[in-house]
Design a binder for these strands. Structure first.
Lengths: 224, 224
DNA sequence: GTGTGTGAAAAACTTCACAGCT
DNA sequence: AGCTGTGAAGTTTTTCACACAC
């Protein structure tokens, strides 16, 4: 049993960074608050908001405090105010021009997906390499040749890209996207991308979602 | 303040349930291991696997132990063996017949998505309510009228459904899916579903993914 | 030497419970 | 009364660090 001196590095908690788990829930609060506003409710309390999302009331209050959001005792939180502040804190809400790269089936579905607009994400330009698609008009967007990508990024001040190309092309295409100065890529190809640290990548892997669902189903039936 | 006698409820850790966080990573291990196998590597150690996925080496070892997976000191883990065991532990790997409900743009993209097959998920039947689509052949699948859904679920032993209908129809359609005896729904509509507890639901919300990405981008640029 | 398995410690996260504001 | 804000306690998850197996 060595007594182990333990130098105590003193972590010194003054962390201004909101905990990762909180960030993950913020988008959900935002969406629910917008729905409440649309239903004509001006305020909401932590226990209702929690119930709608499956969180506890104290968790809601803690999360909001972590983002510096305050409510009024006896009343609750003001929906409209909260929506504004969350948007601001998350850096969204203003217009975010987005580029779509890859206009096959999935890409075309993304062009038609209504959900993006809500938070100001707007697909401004669409690209493909196939001569079959280049020049076509899909839902009001003209498909451009991917060769023009870098120029279009500058012209449209594009910072985010949706990557919906076949797996085999994903890595190479992502590199070119990164080189054009885009700072975030939402990747739909079932391939892990190795990119310079300057660009953030989020992976949407539908097979993994299905696996998790299948596991939940199996467990659900074994137990309760 | 009395020192609180602490009755010690004796948690009695013999929990066979793998921690939720571990389950979330298992699919990622699975995919990386398959890629390693495809590259001709027979074994892998925790630190390489962790590096490929952005996890620490000890986390990898802990995760595997939680699933009862053992490695060999000085060598590492055997990829093929691991893949088999993870599949078995997750309940996947066998064929999972899946139904697609909603054959608009997104639905058609899902029919063409190559990633599902890897783990045995197979879209066996596709449904829509629109007479425009019913009867059409899309990528080898004949679109059926949603009225036949329950019968098809029984005939094809379908347990999972992909829900790709417009937001306004999602809740009602999901209820009918649940009533037909499906046990898991992967929901693509930007709407929260309120369903009986017997059915598991996983939400794929692309707007939320984009929000999280935008936040990561903003933070990334503020700090490092 | 290399790399696992694992107690112990640390950190992150969640819930409890209640003082205090409206 | 109703509901927030928050210390304190509890729980889960991650990392550390090292004995031990190959």
């Amino acid at each position: 049993m060595p007594p182990s001196p333990t130098p105590r590095p003193r972590p010194e908690r003054t962390d201004p960074t909101p905990p990762r788990a909180v960030v993950g829930r913020m988008s959900h609060y935002l969406r629910t608050l917008q729905a409440e506003l649309a239903d004509g409710r001006a305020t909401i309390n932590s226990s209702r908001l929690g119930r709608l999302l499956g969180f506890s009331d104290s968790q809601v209050r803690r999360d909001f405090r972590a983002f510096g959001l305050a409510g009024r005792p006896g009343v609750g939180y003001e929906c409209a105010d909260l929506v504004d502040r969350i948007r601001k804190a998350m850096g969204i809400g203003r217009s975010w021009p987005v580029a779509l790269v890859g206009c096959g089936n999935l890409g075309q579905a993304l062009l038609g997906y209504g959900g993006f607009a809500r938070e100001g994400f707007e697909i401004r330009a669409a690209f493909d390499r196939s001569p079959r698609l280049v020049g076509r008009d899909i839902r009001g967007i003209r498909v451009e040749d991917f060769g023009h990508f870098a120029e279009s990024v500058r012209r449209n001040r594009i910072r985010l890209a949706l990557l919906a190309v076949p797996a085999a092309e994903a890595e190479q295409t992502a590199l070119e996207i990164a080189r054009a100065g885009v700072s975030g890529i939402l990747n739909f190809a079932p391939v892990r991308l190795n990119l310079p640290a300057a660009v953030s990548v989020t992976h949407v892997d539908l097979a993994i979602e299905l696996e998790q669902l299948a596991f939940a189903v199996v467990r659900h039936q074994k137990r309760g």
